[in-house]
Amino acid sequence: MITIINYGVGNLSALINMFEFIGYDARIADESSRILDASHLVLPGVGAFDAAMNRLRGSRLIPSLEQAVLEREIPLLGVCLGMQLLGRRSEEGLTKGLGWIAGDTVRMQPEPSFNLKVPFMGWAGVECSPSATLFDVGSEQRFYFTHSYQMRCDHQSNIAGIHQFGGPVVSAVQHKNIYGVQFHPEKSHRFGMRLLGHFIERSR
């Protein structure tokens, strides 16, 4: 079953609601056994990097997550801060990330001439890479973002989509069975519904 990882961070009910709305059962889990037998995993996240990472570590779920994602290759989708946790580290904090995606998270500092305010809270169009699994290449993609930090990837091949915020910003990452989106699909109307549907249908 689709399993949303509960480590005390993130809007779990919004994800459950949207999966239900598009016809999938999803459950919230905070036990290793449930993570290991999931069909798909979702790693939500909001707030500060260190706080979230420390809670995830405190939940003692990381060993089973590593087993599920790296060995059993169960598809995982990191959402918002959940995507940033997939990287090695963040300028926002001192603790290490999961290190599954070769990338680091840095604070967004758009040039003053753009007159953009951080955090970026709002909708942006996403330009997806031709090989991006979770997007409909060629059709409109509009998602709700709320973030102050952005991920920078070592490899172009891991970037599944970008949006513009005073320059290109990574909006989605992809590496084997590991996916991440900086935006909130669960709060992005039909665009988010389609993306979550693709995650379920296309990621295995």
Partner: peptide, 27 residues
């Protein structure tokens, strides 16, 4: 019912007041 971001206000005075509101699905 909200497949868009939702903010909520009214009588929130503390973290204790806010925690269950976040848990209810408010961003």
């Amino acid at each position: 019912e909200c497949f868009m971001p939702l903010s909520y206000g009214g009588g929130i005075k503390s973290v204790a007041d806010a925690a269950p509101i976040f848990a209810a699905g408010v961003e």
